Computed example of a mutant assay.
Amino acid sequence: MAEHCPIARGFREENVIRPLVTLLSFDLSMDDPKLKFGKQSIHSIVHKEMEMKNLYNTRLVSSSSSFHYSEGSSKGGTNRKDRENEKPEVKIGLKISCAEALWMLAKESVPNSKRITDTKGLLCLAKLVETEEGELQYNCLMTITEITAAAESNADLRRAIFKTNSPAAKAVVDQLLRVIKDSDNPRLSVAAVRAIGSLARTFPARETRVIGPLVEQLSHRNQDVAIEAAISLGKFACPDNFLCVEHSKSIIEFRGVPPIMRLLRGNERAQLHGLILVCYLAIHAGKSDDLERAGVLNAFEGVERAIIAQHHKLRELIPQAIYHLSVFHQSHSGMLAQRPFLAPLILG
């Protein structure tokens, strides 16, 4: 319902999110301190909320699953014994469905993303990304990706959920970075890279541990992953990011310029996002010798007019980048007058 009808994402009175998180967290090790808050675990928190919402007699069906909530049960309204006796394939099937439902509910929805985090669902999702594989891992990762996208679009949600000292935020970032570094599955890599990019404005200047792995992905053999890395790094280096100068310098220090220049030889999408990123670097860190050695000014000259004509953003950024590079590198003095392609861009 949530996938095919945006209106269905507005569940309020029914509050389907808490029982979904409860089922998703079933069988997770409660010995993990990350899954406990004071003396309460995820289970105790969500079960208490379920009792308050009077969600008894609600059946959640997944394939042949007989999991259900039974009224009058002495265990928080849930027949845990039936769940524990289910076959492993049924348990995993239910969790896959729960994670997919949360993914669809979180999609383009700030309220639902907040509800998931209010149930401590972020920690549960991070734990499953760490311990599971296949569709369950992917669905959990995509739910995280949607929550981070919501946080990117909503400053209040971003500040509330992804504080630097938040255990949930740290657990999520740790798992995203682990996937980026270790996964050989492009589908997972793209999702993790995208999620880190959505959080770009939450990282302080000293938090360079996220920049290095993203720069490495610029050289990924799968071009979709490389392009996604360029897009994410662009969110660190863009003017909307208060720390754009510091992040731009970090990208260059991590040897990001050479792989960006290789993107400019890729398909149109690779060229577009490679150009946007290298423009940001030139504007905010134009003094870097790496940019000069890489021949960024020459690269701008080789950009096809058609690409610039199709993308208004490039028409704004390229002249600014050329200006900063030419000002800070005296060896380029007079170059603009000599090159008929660059001069019109500067002059508008």
Rank of each mutant, 00 (worst) to 15 (best):
E292I: 00
V296I: 14
E292A: 01
R262W: 02
L243T: 07
V245S: 10
E268C: 02
V327S: 01
A200R: 08
Q310S: 14
I251L: 10
A200H: 07
Q338K: 13
G274A: 09
E292G: 00
E246W: 03
Q271D: 03
Q320M: 14
G266Y: 11
V193Y: 05
H324G: 00
I252D: 13
V225Q: 07
I322R: 02
G295V: 07
D289H: 12
A337Y: 01
V210M: 08
Q223H: 07
A270F: 03
A306E: 14
V193F: 05
A270Y: 02
S331G: 04
N241S: 05
A294C: 06
I276V: 15
I227W: 01
L336E: 00
V245A: 12
E246C: 06
R221W: 00
A237E: 09
I283H: 04
A299M: 12
I318H: 08
N241D: 10
H311G: 04
D290P: 02
R201Y: 03
A282H: 04
R221I: 01
R194H: 13
A229E: 11
V215M: 09
L325G: 03
L214M: 15
G286C: 08
P258V: 05
L272C: 08
S333F: 09
A205W: 06
S331A: 09
R209H: 14
F236Y: 03
R206S: 15
L199Q: 11
D290M: 11
R255P: 00
E228S: 13
S248C: 10
G197N: 07
H220S: 14
P204K: 13
R293Q: 12
A294G: 06
L272A: 07
